[in-house]
Amino acid sequence: MSLFGNLSDLPFVEVVALLSRKSGALEISLGPFRSHYQLYVADGSLRGMVRDHSPVEDALQAREEIVKLFVAQSGSFEFTKLSPESLVGNLDLPLQRILLSISTMHDEIGAFREHFADPRTQFRATQALEESLDPTLSDFWQRSHKYFSDLPSGISAQQLSSLLRISLEQAQLYLYKLRAAGLVAPIRAVEQPPKNHQPLAPSIPASAPVAVGVAQPSPKSKPRSDGLIPRLLQALKGKIL
């Protein structure tokens, strides 16, 4: 029995469905000058992956490669049966579930693209993880959380994409979801002012168009009366009196 063909006729999703109860090595060649893959599968799970002769190191990168196969328009494939015992690798990823989450991810990127933060916006961690994340997000979080919490200037989708070798849009989607989950937020390079900051001069009357959220005296912010800002403020107020 032999299982071979081209992804142009039999898309990767369908190949994976066929392999769900088989064990062996699936070779895929996306074409001349393009990547060549070996996927080791046993009992529907991806146990190891080699891309262009080097092993794929972790689940996050494996997902990234699976995305490429998922969207490949063509590429020859051939499956060779092997005994499951010989297939002990560094990965253990349920292939069909991953494909499902990838197709969801594709839809999500399409749906949320407009709302993504700028790829250069720096993010930081806001709270520790309490509940469990879905597996895709959790792989990403495991690889990335140290950057969010350890780097004082935070980390951007652009930097994550090159550090973790994933596509920029995926990094943006992960950030978008982590943010929605309340785990990360954009850095404010300038710190938030003290709550209830004290206006330096008599505050604007409540009827004025801008007076929002005024201002209990705070012992921390004692301005210098000869400072530049109070001078500017006084001059400005002079203009409207």
Partner: peptide, 19 residues
């Protein structure tokens, strides 16, 4: 209205104690 906005910004700048 624009001056009020600027006043508000400068008050905030002052509150940062960056003077």
């Amino acid at each position: 209205s624009s001056i009020f906005t600027l006043i508000h910004l400068l008050e905030l700048v002052g509150a940062y104690q960056l003077s």
